[in-house]
Structure formats: C-alpha cells, structure tokens
Nucleic acid binder design. Structure first.
Lengths: 358, 358
DNA sequence: GCCATCGCTTGGATCGATTCAAGATACGAA
DNA sequence: TTCGTATCTTGAATCGATCCAAGCGATGGC
C-alpha cells in the first residue's frame, strides 16, 4: 500500500487504477474506450482514481499491439530527413501527401538515415501501416528494405525497370520530349542540357553514353526524351553539351560557366528539374543574358516557385498533388493490385521560353 | 501442416517460425536480435524457416511494447499537416529539428488534426517519446492535450504566461524593439505595422487595444516591443496604423492598400514576420514604391528566403536552428528541469531598410 | 571416470492494453 | 416468490515480441 512510491518508480498502468478503483481492468478499459457502457457511478470512480494516481490515459503502445493498426504512413528517403523540408519537389509532394493524410486522419512518420547501417534499422522498426518511398536515385536498397517489411508500399518516381514494385510516376521520356519539342518548334537549334545526378556526388560535363549508365532512371529517361525529340527535328544530338549537376546552385552555375565558355553558345537550355532551371535563371541574370530574348529555358517538375521566378518558368509539370493523393490512397486502402501508374505530365508555357534569337 | 493457408490468413509470427524450425521462441528471437549468441547451425535453420514462411522480421509493434521507447519524436501543430511544408518559418524549424533527429537516429512523427475532435485522438494515440509543439497561437488545448500524455514536452514560441510549460522561444519584445529602434535611428518617423493574426481567420485594421487582447502572444509582444521603442523616440504611437494580417499574400496586400490609401503615408513598415515582409516587398514593387529609397521595411524570423529577396530583407533573426536543436535535445534527454528558455535574437541589416527620405 | 566450466537453449514472465464469452446483479412481470 | 431479461462486470485470452533465470549437454582438466 505505497501507491506514491510505486507511482514514482514506474508509470501508472491501467491495471493499477483498476485495482485502486476496485474494478477489473476490463471495466477500467471500457471507461476510456467506451465510456457509455459503464455505469456512471463506476465511471466517475475510475476517473477519479486515474486523476488521483496521475494516470496519463491508456498507453498507445499497449493499444497498438492489440489493434494492429498504427494509423500512420511512413515516408522514407535515402537522403537526410531535412530533404523533406529543403527540396522544392519533395516539399510540394509532402504537402500533398499531408493533405491526403489530414483528410483521413492518418499521421505521417518521416524515416531516413544518415548512414546505411541506421537505414536498415529505421525502416525495420518504423511504426507505420505502409511506406511511401522517395526514390530520387536507384535506391534499390531502400526499396528492398521497405518491401521486406511486407507492408503496403508505393515508390514515387522509380525506375520503370522492376515491374514487381508498386510505383507512381510520370512518363519521363514523354515529358522531356514535350519540353524539347516546344523549344524546337520555337526555332531553337542550339541546345544544352543540365542533368540531374547520374552518379553520387560528382558533377561536370558528361557524355550521352555516361548518362545512359546513370543509376537514377529519371536522369536517363529525361535525356532520352530530350534527344529523341531533338533528333526528330534533325538536330545532331552528339553536339549538344550535357552537364551533370547535383541539383544545387553551385553545380548549376559551374555548368553554365562551362557551357557558355565554349565557342558555340546555346540559345535553349533543357533543365531536368525546376530547381536547376531556377538556379540557371539566376546565373543568366547575373551574366546579363536576357531570358527568353537571348536564351530560352525549360524546367521539369512544376514546383510553385517556378510561377514566381523572373521570368516565370516554362516547365514540364508533374501532377504532384495527384501523385501524393494516389500514393496515400494506395497505402491506406492497401492496394495489392496497384503495380505501376504512369500519370500524364503537362507542359506549362510561361515566359522563360521564346522564339530563337537567330 | 498447412503453412500456406495459415500464412495467408494471418501474418507469420516469430513463434510460428520458431515452431517450424524446431526451436523455442526465445532462441528464434535471439536469431534476429543477437545473432552472435546463437549457434550458426541453428541460426541458419531459423533463418531458412523464416525465409520459407515469408516472415517479415520481428514486428516492431511487439518489440515496442517491451522496449518502451519508440525512438521518434512527435511534432504537433493545430494547423493542417501541410503547414510544416508550406510555412517559411515552420520549414526552417523543421529542417533544423530533422537535422538534430538525424544526428541521433530518431524519427519524426507529424501530428495534426483538421478538426479538434480528431486532434485529441491524434495526440493521445501518437506513438512518440515526446512532443515538440508548434504554438502559433494560444493553442492552449493543444498544449494541454500534449502535456496530459505526461511525455517529455517542449513548446516552441509559446506565450510567456504559463510558467509551468516547458518552452523555447525568443524575447519578442526585445526583438521587435530592435527592429523599431533600427528604423527610428535611420530617421524614420512615419510608421505602419503589419501584424500576425490576433484572432482566428479575420484580417483588417486593428487598434493597439485589440492587439493587446490577441490570443497569440507573439503578436502582442512584438507590438509592445515596437511601440515601446518608438515611444522612446518620441513618436506618438496612437497615430501609427496597425493592420492585422493572416500571414498570407492576400491579407498583406489588402493591408498595404489600406495603409497607403490614407493621407499620411508611412516611410517605414514593421512586419511581424518575414513572410509578411516578403509579400509586402512584392506589393511595393508592383506599386513602384522603391525600397529602401521611399519606404523601409523590417521583417521578423530570419528565414533564408529573406536573403534572396529583392532587395534582401532586413529582419530580426530568430536562432531557428538552435531552437530546433535544443527542442530535440530536451525531448530526447528528457529534461524535466527545462522550464523556459529565451534565446537571443539578432538584427540582420540588409538592404530593405535605409535612411528616411524626408 | 568424475566434476567444473562454458555456452547454447528453454520456457515462463512481462510489456499495457483490448475483447469477449460467461457470470453476476438488479429489476420487472407473472 | 420465482423466473426472465437487460445491463454491467468479470477474468481469461490475445496481440508479438524481449529478457532472464534455470537447465542441459558437451568439453576439458585432473
């Protein structure tokens, strides 16, 4: 009979207050879970005991085991956690995922890992009902770990290679083709391409053959889309300079330094992400190259920042909101069937693209 | 002996594969948790059984109950979940929180609720080791619910009123004073204030007395800071127009329409958030009012976007990264002691403020 | 050949709740 | 008074793992 001591040493359990109130733990549980079926007098007594003993309410840890459902979906990435808040594309995607979760009352768990040792553990021990995986690169390890959990699983933007993995994405080849055709139809014949990463960490000029070996399928497919369409306009794609960036300001600026230091300057730039395009816009402005008078540029993704840039960015918009919605739906409704959804992209023409100066 | 059927009806448990492998569940557990203490021959046998039966590995739900620690911190807000990805300030804060979590291997659970009914349940059933609560307004209900969980708890940016709540914030009065003094010392005598919300949802001109009744303490304190300092410079603050915004473009623009339609136009604007200030910058540019030549403006928060605006924004920078780090540390190390930390703010002078035109 | 030691394995207890069939109580009707 | 019914309450089973004391077998020393 030293409730104070035991309350100090270990948290109060439902069984403790049941005993204190002189009822069974079954009844005590009902007081919290289904108060209506407990007689008022008993209910008040139990609640009073809970209050007196400083009971924090039924512990979700216990409930979870019984219920089986966490009511939260995990969003995983190989990047650091802050990727979700730093990256333009991830941000929009997360906003749409969170709206879908809000609508259904589900929570979101962010899962990541600095080192790959941690990654495995984080994925294996994440308390979630399913995973949405951000696959910026051929993160096959991440995908594999997530699938091993045997929970509902959707990959966003994954390579089209493995048909067994559920994935939601866009047709990168088609989207890139749209961008290239748009510029070609405006009369442009001198192109340059700023790519997303092919290999981890490095940046610099690359060849078409090198991009073909990229681990990130979006990089490969977008280049194929660009060049496929350009070739159709009779442009010799082997002469088009390709510069690999790591999707940040530094590498993009280095790329433009490189591209515009050559003898034949492009009049049109194909950027594989809006982020690249927006950094490029900054570089061009600083170098007094007018957009779109001197140079046109088309991005990829359709992030909202593109609408407010100077000039507003022409881009290939992914249906990001729709992708997020579908991903959440797939997890919560546990589609076993969904194997691969390719959503349509949309060329959004704004003011960063115009007729070729020549 | 119909493993296929039973595997279909219900997920495979550790006990199932233990039986299949002919070992006790204790040993089976060791195979996964401490493989080194199990004889290799047995280990292989168990792993083979697991593989054969399609076992997904030890279920974290079960582990959790025993271990007691979730290894994740909950971040809660009264706003919709997308707030974390949309709002400038929240984004920076979340980036710093996630860096701190990454460093320690902890996960992040985002908790929110569209309606207040859901809120209670979401907070009560969140699987977390502690809460960091974003208190943009006097969300006392949110704070109360979180505290009832009796988990480690930290509020960010809460009113200084309730001393019992652990909170990390800045001295809003001091910060606002810094901004006001900076402008006053530049010779400005004609001010206008754009406030954060006082009451949910509405916006429009307000009086000092109305702001004093704001439920959001930061709004109150920042106005006090502004006016306290302005009064020190002999400015009659009762003549300074105050416009309440809801921290979005529409209300800010409406505010400036209102303020600049009056007879005496301000030369200096005090904005209670960088977001407000950045929207104001857009409005001023569209109305051909040069900053800082015609009008100076100072923001509050210190978000990175302020450094890239045109012109770059003078602002009162909160130590957002440090606040995030401390909050995470407080949760993970379960400071019972931390009651209230006020961190220093920093006036960052950029180009949006200059000498008064008069 | 016996005993001590070492190392792996075992089975039960535990984490904290929910659920359900069965039992108990109270109340009204015959 | 007795039985039936409606309403609570009870206690055991369950969720899926981890942990630990005790047991057991093999090995090596004397």
């Amino acid at each position: 009979m030293t409730p104070l001591t035991s309350a100090k040493t270990r948290p109060v359990r439902l069984a403790d207050i049941a005993k204190a109130a002189g009822v069974s733990h079954g009844t005590a549980s009902n007081v919290f879970a289904r108060p209506d079926i407990v007689r008022e007098e008993v209910r008040e007594r139990v609640k009073a005991a809970a209050e007196a003993m400083g009971y924090a309410g039924p512990d979700p840890k216990g409930r979870l085991l019984r219920a089986g459902k966490v009511n939260a979906i995990g969003v995983a990435t190989g990047e650091p956690l802050s990727y979700f808040f730093d990256d333009l594309f991830a941000r929009v995607m997360m906003a749409s995922i969170s709206q879908a979760c809000d609508a259904t009352g589900a929570g979101i768990s962010l899962v990541s890992a600095a080192n790959s040792e941690q990654l495995a553990w984080n994925i294996q021990s994440a308390l979630v009902d399913g995973f949405i995986v951000f696959c910026m690169e051929g993160d096959s390890r991440l995908v594999q770990l997530a699938r091993e959990r045997k929970l509902p699983f959707v990959a966003l933007d994954l390579d089209s290679d493995d048909q067994a993995v559920a994935a939601i994405g866009v047709d990168n080849i088609e989207g890139a083709g749209l961008a290239a055709r748009h510029l070609a139809e405006l009369g442009h014949r001198h192109f340059a391409v700023l790519t997303l990463p092919c290999v981890d960490g490095r940046f610099g000029p690359v060849t078409q053959a090198q991009v073909e070996k990229a681990s990130f399928s979006a990089t490969r497919d977008r280049l194929r889309g660009y060049f496929g369409e350009l070739a159709r306009f009779g442009i010799d794609v082997s002469l088009v300079p390709i510069y690999e960036t790591v999707n940040d300001e530094k590498s993009v600026w280095a790329g433009l330094d490189h591209i515009f230091s050559g003898s034949s300057k492009p009049t049109a730039i194909l950027a594989m992400s809006d982020k690249i395009a927006l950094h490029a816009l900054d570089w061009l402005r600083q170098h007094d190259i007018a957009v779109p008078r001197d140079v046109s540029i088309v991005g990829f993704d359709g992030v909202p920042e593109g609408a407010d840039s100077k000039p507003p960015l022409t881009t290939v918009a992914q249906p990001i909101a729709e992708m997020g919605r579908r991903a959440v739906k797939a997890i919560l409704e546990n589609y076993g069937s969904l194997s691969r959804q390719l959503l349509p992209v949309d060329l959004v023409v704004r003011s960063s693209s115009g007729p070729s100066p020549a």
